[in-house]
């Protein structure tokens, strides 16, 4: 383990990997807070699956594996998925959950069709595409880190600048609308930022498990604080922590896909938070209860 930590500073490849995973963790952790508070955690799941056909189409059209091109394709089909979900829910009797399930599974199905089509056409580039399914941290190079970093910085800057607006949108959209905030546009913007977080993450965590990066650190962070800003910071930190630890284990050479390990470490953090969390953890509320009971008993005698 110590060797790994040392390698973090000396090993160029490992440093890129860790950096990439940290960036991804911070962004998805921070944006995931808004998704979770607005009960849209599973929207992230559907949109992450919806990126797969986009990656394939971008590759088919451009013939390159340049990360920027593939991620652009990913963002486009994810946005298409989001539009479809909104259209179906707003105009028909189909409910939100079914709309998510359809987009998730059908887009993923279309993605597998395209993956096999690409493989069948004998194009050597195809080997690089199925890493998007479970993620492969080891393939992250400097160029990827730069792309991820720029996207992440832009997304976080928007969150910082519009923090007040996003807060009121998440807590009470009707009240926000009554004061003249363009709730519809802010909604689109926040969903677009979540798409950015997904796009940053799919290379590393993969499309299937990306939802965990949006949901799990945010739910864990909620156990430690009663302030939105605190939750966003802690969630970003938890996201980075799970990203880096997962990537390091995965890169240590045991031929494991990165996504599952990152998700398992995020789950571990969540479970610890559920028990030990300062604001809502089981442990403290149990202790508080006992103290209150003792105080009540003491008062009555």
């Amino acid at each position: 383990m110590l060797e790994l930590v040392a390698a973090l500073f000396t090993d160029y490849t490992l440093r890129n990997v860790a950096l990439g995973c940290a960036v991804l963790g911070v962004v998805s952790g921070a944006l995931g807070c808004f998704a979770v508070l607005r009960r849209q955690g599973l929207l992230g799941d559907a949109l992450a699956h919806a990126t797969l056909p986009g990656v394939c189409v971008a590759f088919l059209l451009s013939g390159t594996r340049a990360p920027f091109v593939l991620l652009l394709g990913a963002a486009l089909t994810a946005s298409l998925g989001a539009l479809l979900i909104i259209a179906v829910v707003n105009t028909t009797r189909i409910k939100y959950d079914a709309a998510l399930g359809i987009v998730l599974s059908v887009f993923f199905g279309a993605g597998t069709v395209l993956l096999t089509y690409i493989a069948g056409s004998g194009n050597s580039g195809q080997s690089g595409l199925d890493r998007f399914i479970f993620g492969q941290a080891a393939t992250i190079v400097r160029g990827d880190v730069v792309t991820m970093g720029i996207l992440a910085a832009a997304a976080l800057l928007v969150v910082f600048v519009l923090f007040k607006e996003f807060k009121i949108l998440s807590f009470d959209p009707e009240f926000a609308a009554s004061m003249g905030f363009p709730v519809g546009k802010l909604n689109v913007l926040l969903t677009a930022l979540i798409v950015v977080a997904i796009v940053i993450g799919i290379q590393t965590v993969g499309v299937i498990l990306m939802a965990a990066m949006l949901i799990t650190p945010a739910a864990a962070a909620r156990q430690w604080t009663d302030k939105l800003s605190g939750m966003v910071f802690i969630s970003g930190f938890f996201g980075a922590l799970s990203g880096v630890s997962g990537a390091m284990v995965s890169a240590s050479g045991s031929n494991l896909p990165t996504g599952p390990i990152i998700v398992l470490s995020a789950t571990g953090i969540f479970l610890l938070s559920l028990v030990f969390g300062a604001r809502h953890g089981f442990l403290w509320s149990r202790m508080r209860e006992r103290r209150n009971r003792r105080a009540a008993l003491g008062g009555s005698t």
């Binding site: 009960r39 007040k164 807590f171 926000a176 909620r222």
Partner: peptide, 26 residues
């Protein structure tokens, strides 16, 4: 404007004072 109390999620991570300040956001 005072919306229905049931229209929001009261588990939201924020304080009473913070909610009142939202009245000044406009």
């Amino acid at each position: 404007y005072v919306p229905q109390r049931g229209s929001v999620d009261w588990d939201f991570p924020t304080s009473a004072l913070d909610i009142v300040q939202m009245g000044l956001y406009g």
